[in-house]
Amino acid sequence: MSQATRYVLFAIWVAALAATPLWADNYTVRLAIIIAMYSALALSWNFIGGFVGYPSFSTAAFFGLGCYAGALTQKAGLPMVGAWVFATLFVGAFAAVLGVIILRLRGHYFAIASFAIVEVVRLVISSWGDLTGGGDGLNVPLVTGGPDAVAQTFLAVMIVIMLTVFAVTVFVDRNRLGFGLRCIKQNENAADMVGVDTTRYKVIAYTLSAMFCGTVGAAYASWTGYIDPSDSFSVLMTVKVPVMCLLGGAGTVFGPIVGTTAFLLLEEFFWARFLEYNRAILGAVIVILIFFLPGGLLRISYRDMVKRLTGRVSQGAAP
């Protein structure tokens, strides 16, 4: 498929999402909002996980912080959009500082640290009851208008966020930043040696991967009108988002969107039928993804699939 065809298909897809209020019921509109929202999160994760190849599992920390930053500033009197912008900048700054500290870890240690950050932020928010309402959660000023109007507003908002992250992705992909990030992914020491400021590049990628999660979180808080720590900092989200990105093809421009869409439609399909087993189904999707689609849907390679199925440890020496 040529790049131009992909852009056209993407445009059609965005138009279809945006048009759901015209032709579909509220439930479908809600699904469209969720798809746009998770697409933005998966595109964000792609900066650090896809381009740089760092196993980051801190999406939920950024999303959750965004929820609280947006909700609290909104409660303090900032207009809604102002609160979203604040959340974006706040989460971006948080990630930049954090990145300087933890991005020198590699591999498993980075993965564990990024997991731990979700927990620490969640625990801090839960125990800071005076400010955040603790485990009781926090009410966010509701958007005026009927449910239909609210849904339409937030569909538009989530699509705009998704398109913004997409535009940044395209820019990074074509820019020297993207090239440098790919160099780091393939050989970090060699990247350093050819003059890539690896620390700065990684911090930029990590910040990009965080800030739009903050926007999404803040918009989500305004949309639902209520947030609590367990919903905002869900371990499930922190793994779901990378899985969506991997499902489509990590490090590609369209992969996160394809993956998110496939994942959520699949989940929707099974959810309705096997509500009791929804986590197991997510698990099964992951297992299938790892064994049958190692490069994601956009890079299906049947030869790799066969190799994977017949492969043994002794043959699969690390490159």
Partner: peptide, 14 residues
């Protein structure tokens, strides 16, 4: 220390 999955040209371009 090459970038293994890049082309020779891309390696040098880096």
């Amino acid at each position: 220390q090459p970038f293994p999955q890049m082309t020779v040209l891309e390696n040098v371009a880096a």
